[in-house]
């Protein structure tokens, strides 16, 4: 980072003269929960891209890509809205999500969530 400006060099009223500068500001630093994307479960519906209140779901060549963790605040809306039968987005705590086994953990949770849902449905059918 360059040396911070002194008051004499600061634009009048602290104006920011560069457009699109919010992209450079790391607002994901205070996230406490982290969404994990499980690519093989993703049906490319783009719901997460639409629902994200920030711009933290990135798209490459028309396909959903990795999260932008510099700006994701961990609100969990993407995980809630994910319509895939086996969830393609799972929320972990920030510590769990940052660990090397995060994806395996997420897969396990997604699998369990789908199994629980199926069991519930079966139970409801019998009754």
């Amino acid at each position: 980072m360059s040396k911070p400006k002194g008051w004499k060099d600061l634009p009048t009223g602290g104006m920011i003269l560069e457009a699109g500068n919010a992209d450079k500001y790391n607002t994901g630093a205070w996230r406490s929960d982290r969404p994990i994307w499980i690519e093989e479960n993703c049906i490319q519906c783009m719901f997460c891209w639409i629902f994200c209140p920030d711009t933290s779901v990135t798209v490459k060549d028309g396909k959903r890509s990795e999260f932008d963790y510099q700006h994701c605040k961990g609100c969990g809306i993407c995980a809630l809205e994910c319509p895939s039968k086996v969830k393609a987005i799972v929320m972990l705590t920030e510590a769990e999500g940052a660990a090397s086994d995060a994806l395996e953990k997420a897969r396990a949770i997604a699998g369990k969530m789908a199994a629980d849902k199926a069991a519930e449905k079966a139970k409801a059918g019998k009754e």
């Binding site: 400006k5 009048t12 602290g14 104006m15």
Partner: peptide, 29 residues
């Protein structure tokens, strides 16, 4: 002598967040 918001050729941000790193410089100015 400063850009204004309708000057679309010079887009700027006004009223941006100034925390411990810049607020006091802004007030000194």
């Amino acid at each position: 002598n400063v850009p204004t918001l309708l000057d679309i050729n010079n887009p700027v941000t006004m009223g941006a967040l100034h925390l411990q790193d810049y607020y006091i410089e802004s007030k000194r100015q």
